[in-house]
Simulated scan of single mutants.
Amino acid sequence: MKTDVSQDDILLREVRDGIGWITLNRPKKINALSAELVAAARAQVEAFEKDDAVKVIVITGANGNFSVGYDIAQEVEMGLSRPEDWHAGLTNNVGLSMAVWSSTKPTIGAVDGWCLAGACELAMACDMIIATDRAKFGEPEIRFGSGPVTLLMPFVLGQKKTMELLLTGDTIEAAEAERVGMINRVVALGELEEVVQKLAQKIALTPMVTLRLTKTALTRAYEAMGLRNAVNVNLDLAATLNAAEAPEKAQFVELVRSEGLRKALDYRDKRYGALT
């Protein structure tokens, strides 16, 4: 039974049998994470964290895609140039992923279609990821002079695969993502919602105090390994990286301004050609 359904344009919220669903809802932009959507999603994660009626939080995307990551066109329009300006904006982006990571309630990423860049980081911040067989993961922002904002991948995948993905900008299919340990399970397209809901309900049978303390212990274990420090250090470096000058990046940004994001992405992809 579905209860407590509300819609606020760019974000959908639903509580279903004790499971809180958050849906990124900018389908015309492939659910790109605008500043407004980042703020709304973080607020909703924090609201579900405080809601005693919610035992598990699910994050998904509308209309056949999770998200293509942070809204590049909006970033270009904002005209950020100094490291300190980038740092302020990126801090908000990191804040969303780390709100998910820090939640004391179990979180599940339900992924269909594209799950790229900052959205890939958001999914990796979830405790578990279930994906359809057509889902694709990666952080291709390296190809236009940016880089990961919330550096979680080394802790999820390990050093070798992280190096490969973050230095090439390659994307991987769901089956490969499962093989390397990025996601938990691959399901058929029409089964995603049902499988995630059943998994969440199974988790929710455990007493809330047990869920909270077990997740806290696991979170602290990763933070003892240096996860949070790595995220904070990377945030400082990412601000510098996004402000750094490179001819390829300058060309990409100019194309976004003059001809639109699609032309800029075509330019980016053409540079890699047959190597993609």
Results as ranks from 00 to 15, higher is better:
residue 9 D to V: 14
residue 105 K to Q: 08
residue 218 L to G: 12
residue 157 L to V: 02
residue 271 R to F: 05
residue 266 D to S: 09
residue 228 R to H: 10
residue 110 A to T: 02
residue 80 L to M: 14
residue 203 I to D: 04
residue 18 G to A: 03
residue 197 Q to K: 05
residue 217 A to W: 10
residue 200 A to M: 01
residue 137 F to S: 06
residue 182 M to Q: 11
residue 207 P to M: 11
residue 266 D to C: 06
residue 49 E to I: 07
residue 256 V to I: 13
residue 196 V to W: 05
residue 9 D to A: 15
residue 143 R to N: 12
residue 131 A to F: 01
residue 11 L to Q: 01
residue 55 K to G: 13
residue 18 G to C: 02
residue 242 N to K: 13
residue 135 A to F: 04
residue 199 L to T: 13
residue 102 S to G: 08
residue 85 D to N: 11
residue 55 K to R: 15
residue 100 V to G: 03
residue 72 I to Y: 08
residue 83 P to C: 07
residue 249 K to G: 02
residue 38 V to P: 03
residue 97 S to L: 04
residue 248 E to I: 09
residue 4 D to A: 12
residue 104 T to F: 00
residue 241 L to G: 02
residue 2 K to G: 06
residue 245 E to I: 13
residue 163 M to C: 11
residue 103 S to M: 08
residue 33 L to W: 01
residue 189 L to F: 09
residue 234 N to I: 04
residue 242 N to P: 02
residue 65 N to K: 00
residue 248 E to D: 14
residue 17 D to L: 10
residue 50 K to Q: 15
residue 13 R to H: 10
residue 66 F to E: 02
residue 272 Y to W: 12
residue 228 R to M: 11
residue 63 N to L: 04
residue 166 L to F: 06
residue 129 I to L: 10
residue 99 A to R: 04
residue 215 K to R: 14
residue 260 G to L: 05
residue 62 A to N: 05
residue 179 R to K: 15
residue 185 R to E: 15
residue 234 N to G: 08
residue 36 E to P: 02
residue 46 E to K: 00
residue 6 S to I: 08
residue 109 G to N: 09
residue 231 V to I: 14
residue 275 L to G: 06
residue 198 K to W: 07
residue 199 L to Y: 06
residue 206 T to A: 13
residue 56 V to E: 01
residue 179 R to D: 11
residue 258 S to E: 13
residue 128 M to R: 12
residue 228 R to L: 12
residue 28 K to V: 14
residue 150 T to R: 00
residue 184 N to T: 09
residue 211 L to M: 14
residue 181 G to Y: 03
residue 102 S to I: 05
residue 233 V to E: 10
residue 154 P to I: 03
residue 50 K to D: 13
residue 74 Q to E: 15
residue 146 S to N: 14
residue 249 K to S: 08
residue 221 A to K: 15
residue 133 D to Q: 02
residue 110 A to F: 01
residue 42 R to W: 02
residue 168 T to F: 08
residue 52 D to V: 07
residue 29 K to H: 13
residue 154 P to T: 08
residue 51 D to C: 02
residue 39 A to I: 02
residue 251 Q to N: 11
residue 152 L to V: 07
residue 100 V to Y: 09
residue 79 G to A: 12
residue 26 R to H: 05
residue 10 I to L: 11
residue 275 L to A: 15
residue 29 K to A: 13
residue 178 E to Y: 06
residue 117 A to S: 15
residue 226 G to D: 08
residue 41 A to T: 06
residue 34 S to T: 12
